[in-house]
Structure formats: structure tokens, C-alpha cells
Design a protein around this nucleic acid. Structure first.
Lengths: 365, 365
DNA sequence: TCCTAGGGTACTCCTATCTTT
DNA sequence: TAAAGATAGGAGTACCCTAGG
């Protein structure tokens, strides 16, 4: 591989001149003729500047990190896509760490949707020394190879997030807030719940339940608060037996639904808002298994849209959150942070949208 | 941020000694007492070696690149997961480039890229025309920031792959083979098709079609070949009107199915093998839309399993390919390649497995 | 003379900032 | 003043040295 000196020799100039030309350094002039010689030499040698050497000198690597609980999760795909696209558009590379993979946890796609699941320590992972969660993250961000970091959802527990923040690395949290850390983007979860409740109310439902996120996270709290506020606003009573929560997985949804059914024998809800797409899939299957028909017996609205919601049985009515935008905004904020602009907490202004499919209908009674 | 010299000063030793201790260099001895002093100093200063400086010197970055067509294709998720997990276990970081995201990028991308060297004609417009996919990858891998690269599926065309190979960067292709490039891992696609065909044959089907992959890739060819061989082995005739292909997307599946239906009015297949999970979902919905019942009117078997297949309408019978293993093997091969061990082409030995669900049944007639 | 325990230097490649012609 | 050269890092590691017993 050719380096700067090789180019300089071939063009018969000093390496620093080559550097100036190739960087288009405006602070100093180079004769067109010399510039031409240098560009030709670089092309002929197929020269590429070495990113490591450049980064060492400039303290910029044009690389951002992304820590995400799981790459194969339907609920995250829009966010990831938004981040990748925005980063690419800004000329940044993305280093992705799949927290689930690092953890060595089972590759269960639905393990974590948008709530928090704080994984236990690997414990019995002798493997190589570098394989522990903390190590990898510490190395990743303390290394100097990243300009900044995006932590999506509950990929790290608050303790780790605080550590990163202390290190002074520019940091943006996605759909996740932690006290004391600046830089976060969330979608309007309160409004999202309201959209779901209002849809059911419009259909004529009055007994509306919630299957929320079990984890004690900001997102879980906002979604539940939105549900309660919307119910109150619609003058509807909340029966606490209709409010359940579970991990955002298919199994979590099934279990939560069974608990809800067991608790509410005397007065069943006719509609349920489910705070996670994965849970909703589990809810549908549990309802089917228990001989209930959706939407005739019970209507279901789920948080987060995905093309696959078109293809469940029945197709799921969802609330589409602006997740793509959330990812893009996260990158935008991070880029600002890299430029030293202080960043705050953003709620993506795009309104959640109801995507009506076939899992909701007027109540039968 | 503390550096090596800071640690050396605090421990009152030479930087090179600190380096040896922190790297556990076995080639030279350090007194336990000195070692302790150094470790303490490093801990107190919260020292982390700078990856850029280290990489510059050692020519190793402990980072591998992954180029993948799309992060939100369910059929790929196991592969990605296997790669992430194996990389993490080996202490490697992964730089992911979502080819789809890069492709759809804004024109700014071009300018950023061309800023360095590859700028097209000097006199012409600022070279934004040269902003091809290839440039991004050129930069990514010519940069020195990656030790090696995994190219998954058809993320790059053969020409680009060949370019990368020429550059001499260790390279492993996943479910993709190109003549002349060494290092590839594939699953047994031929056998996969056979498993699907045999399942339908066992159920009594004799008119079996294929919706393959449209791209002119090795994988597409192997899956089609497997179908043809299995049909021949079962003494079944192939009606070419039953053989269609399309891109591996929901829409691609829908369109291919409609073409197949249009072409085969006089003699319809009773079962179809679909070479992609995403396409199969589209096929299901198109069949529903056209008033056909699955599996009574037509049976569907899809390539690649995913938990979501449990929840489509009806649940999809699939052939589970050893994709997780394929991802892990890709990393293993790449690590070998990094050590200078020549790598060949591997077919993951794990057999494809049929996962019977409800989209297949004996034919009605 | 050999070993121990560590020191010193050169080198990786690029860029920022002087200095020179 | 335009145009280029020279120098000094940036942070680490490989390799060669040396003082002392």
C-alpha cells in the first residue's frame, strides 16, 4: 500500500504538500501544475490515506458507535435503518455492537423490543478474556476509535450509561432517557398510547386494557401514562385488573394476556392496547389458543408498525411511531455534539399514526 | 485522557515497560513489584491504550467489516447474529455497512468521499458523479481500519468483490461465491430445496413450482438446481410455467406469484417452494387476496426459518438453514485468514431442517 | 558469560504549524 | 506574497540495548 511519502516522491514534492492537496486545504496555495502532478501520482499509486494515522493526528475518526440490544428485532429495524442512512449521508461509518450477541445471550429475536431488559452477567463465559460485556464496551469507547456513540433502547443499564457519559464521549440515547445524561431522542409515547386508546374509543369501546412494558424504564412509564391520561380524557374508568405488563417478547405477551384474563373473569375488557409489537403477536396467538376471536371478541392495537403486521392473523392494527426519523435525529444530534454544540433532549415531533388493520372492530356487546 | 507516558511517569518506569506489562508481553520479564506499580498507576489514571496508535504500529485493528444488503431482512438475522456473536467472542469489533442504507444516501455522500483522492476529473464538476457504492467500500477497506471483511449475500456485485480481493484484504463471502475469490461459506442450498420438494412430495403433491431468487447469483442458481434435481429424483415433471423468480421482498413475492398464476392458467401447481422467507410472506398475502386458500388450494414452503413464521396466516412451513452457524464459520474463517492461513470454500455441513407448520397439506385433488 | 529487569530508539502515517525561497 | 519545504508531534509497539549480579 502506497503512503504519503510514496506519492510525494513520485510527484517530486514534500509530503506535507501532498497532504495539503489531497485534503483540499484552503489555507495554502498550490500551483495548479503541482497539484496536477500530485493528483496523478496519487491515482497511479492507488493511494488511500490511512485512517488510523489521520485519526491519530486529527482526533477524529469519522466513525460513530451504535449499541443496540439486538439487531434482529422487528421493532428496531426502522431505527437502525435511520441511523445507518443518516450516518452514510454524513460520511460517517458505523460500528455496531449487538449487545445480545456480546452478552452471549440466546439469539432469541424477540428478547428485547423497546423496553429494558438488563441482562445478567455472563458468569459462565470463560471463553476469551475480551468477551465480557463491560470489557467490550469499555474498549470500544475508551479506545479513541469512535467520535461518538448512540445507545439505543435499553442496550446498557444506567450504570454503564453513566460511565460513558463521565468519559466525556459525545453520547446520544435513543428512546431511552437517564437522569443527568444529556442528549436523547424519544418519540411521543404518551401521544402514541392516546392514539391507540382514541381509536378504540371511536369504535365504541369503553372497557379498554393495557399490556405495558414490564421494565422500569422511561418508555414504559410514558406509554402507561399516555394510556391513563387518554382514558381519563375520554371519561372512561380504568379497572386495574385490565392493566398488565410483561417483557416485550412473544412469550411475554402471551403470559401477560393470560394473567389479564385470569384477573378479570367478571369484567373483561373489549379492547387492549399492547405496548410492544412482539407482545402483540404473542397476545394474538394466546387469544387464538384460548378460543377467542380477534377482533370480534376482543380488539388489539399494538405499538410500533412493521410490514409484517400486514401478515399476522389477523393483520394487526398498530400505532406507527416515527422510528426512522428518531434514528436520523439521533445521528443529527450526535454530529452536533461532535461539533461542540450542546445537545438537549428531543421528542421527535412527528405524530404517531394509527395504521388500521383487522385486529380492531366495534365491540360486539 | 491519560496516555502511556502518563502511566510511565506515575509508575516511574519507561513507557516501553508499561507497554510490555499491559500487553502481557511474555518475551520479557518484569518484577512483580514493578508490574504492580504499573497496573496500579494505569488503574488510577483510568488508562486505555489508544486503538489508533496501536493499530498504526501493529497493523491490526481487531476490527472486521460486514457488508450486508439490508439489516432488516428476517432471512439474514441469524447470519448477522452469528457473526456478531463469534466476533465478540474473539474480541473483535464489527463495522457494519448496510448496503441498502448507503445506496439510498443523499448526494452529500459523494462530496465527502471524493474530498480525499478519488476525485474524478480535476476540471469537471466536484466529482459527485463518482459517488458510487464502490467508493464507500473502497474507503472503508482501503483505509487500514479493518483487518478483514465479510461480504454477506449479494451486497456487492462481482466486480466490486473482485476489486476488494485484488487489494489483498482478507475476505470471506457469506452465502455467495465468486470465481477466483477464495474464502466463502455457504449453506447447502441444493439440499435445502430438496428438503422442501421432498416434503411436498411426501404429502402427495406432484405439480410443484418454484419461486426463486431473481438475482443472477450462485445462491439463486443452487436453489433452483436443488429444486430441479429433487423433482427429477422424484420422477416429477417440471412445467416451466411453474418456475418464477423475484427479488427477496414481500412485493417481489407477490409479483412473482401473480406472474406464475397468469402463466399457468391451464395447469396450476398444487405446491410451491419459495426461495426466500420475505417472498413467501408476499406469496401468502397474494394468494389470500386472490381468493385462494393455503394450504387447501395450494401449499407453500419457504426457505429460511424465523420465529415470525409461527405467526403468519397461516403459519409458514419452512426449511431452516444453518444460518447462525454460517455466520460463525465466516468469522472463524476470516480469523484464520488474518493469521495467514489460506482459507477455502466451506459448505456448512449442518443439514437443512424442515419446520412443518400449517402452510402445507396434502393436495385436494 | 549469561540472565534479569528494564531503558532507549525508531518506526507506523498523517497533519498542523513554522520557516524558507 | 505565493509556493513549497521542514519539523514536530499524535500514542503506541517492535526491536535492540545495557547495567548489574
Amino acid at each position: 500500500m502506497a503512503n504519503l511519502r510514496d506519492v510525494a516522491r513520485r510527484a517530486e514534492v514534500d509530503p506535507s504538500t501532498v497532504s495539503r492537496v489531497l485534503r483540499d486545504d484552503p489555507s495554502q496555495q498550490v500551483r495548479p501544475e503541482t497539484r496536477e502532478r500530485i493528483l496523478t501520482a496519487a491515482r497511479e499509486l492507488n493511494y488511500r490515506p490511512n485512517a488510523l494515522a489521520r485519526g491519530l493526528r486529527t482526533r477524529r475518526t469519522d466513525t460513530i458507535g451504535l449499541i443496540i440490544p439486538s439487531l434482529d428485532n422487528l421493532g428496531f429495524s426502522d431505527v437502525t435503518h435511520g441511523i445507518q442512512a443518516a450516518a452514510a449521508a454524513a460520511g460517517k461509518l458505523v460500528m455496531v455492537v449487538d449487545a445480545g450477541a456480546v452478552d452471549g445471550s440466546a439469539p432469541e429475536w424477540a428478547e428485547v423490543l423497546d423496553g429494558a431488559v438488563d441482562g445478567g452477567e455472563p458468569g459462565a463465559s470463560p471463553a476469551s478474556a475480551a468477551a465480557t460485556k463491560g470489557d467490550v464496551y469499555e474498549r470500544l469507547i475508551g479506545d479513541g476509535r469512535l467520535d461518538g456513540l448512540i445507545v439505543a433502547f435499553a442496550a446498557l443499564d444506567d450504570r454503564h450509561v453513566a460511565q460513558l457519559a463521565e468519559r466525556g464521549i459525545p453520547l446520544v440515547l435513543v428512546n431511552r432517557r437517564t437522569t443527568g445524561v444529556h442528549g436523547s431522542v424519544v418519540v411521543d409515547d404518551v401521544r402514541g398510547s392516546a392514539v391507540a386508546v382514541e381509536h378504540l374509543v371511536r369504535l365504541g369501546h369503553r372497557r379498554i386494557g393495557l399490556i405495558g412494558l414490564a421494565a422500569d424504564t422511561d418508555t414504559a412509564r410514558r406509554r402507561e401514562a399516555g394510556y391513563r391520561q387518554a382514558m381519563t380524557a375520554a371519561d372512561l374508568a380504568i379497572d386495574e385488573r385490565w392493566v398488565e405488563a410483561g417483557p416485550p417478547t412473544v412469550e411475554g405477551g402471551r403470559a401477560a394476556l393470560y394473567r389479564l384474563l385470569a384477573a378479570s373473569r367478571s369484567a373483561r375488557p373489549t379492547g387492549i392496547v399492547v405496548a410492544s409489537l412482539m407482545s402483540a403477536v404473542g397476545v394474538l396467538s394466546a387469544l387464538r389458543d384460548s378460543g377467542r376471536h380477534v377482533p370480534d371478541d376482543i380488539s388489539i392495537v399494538a405499538f410500533n408498525d412493521h410490514p409484517f403486521a400486514d401478515h399476522t392473523a389477523p393483520p394487526l392494527t398498530t400505532v406507527r411511531m416515527p422510528n426512522l426519523r428518531m434514528g436520523q435525529e439521533a445521528v443529527r444530534m450526535l454530529l452536533h455534539a461532535l461539533d461542540g454544540v450542546p445537545v438537549g433532549d428531543l421528542v421527535v415531533p412527528d405524530a404517531p399514526e394509527l395504521v388500521a388493520r383487522e385486529s380492531t372492530a366495534p365491540p360486539r356487546d
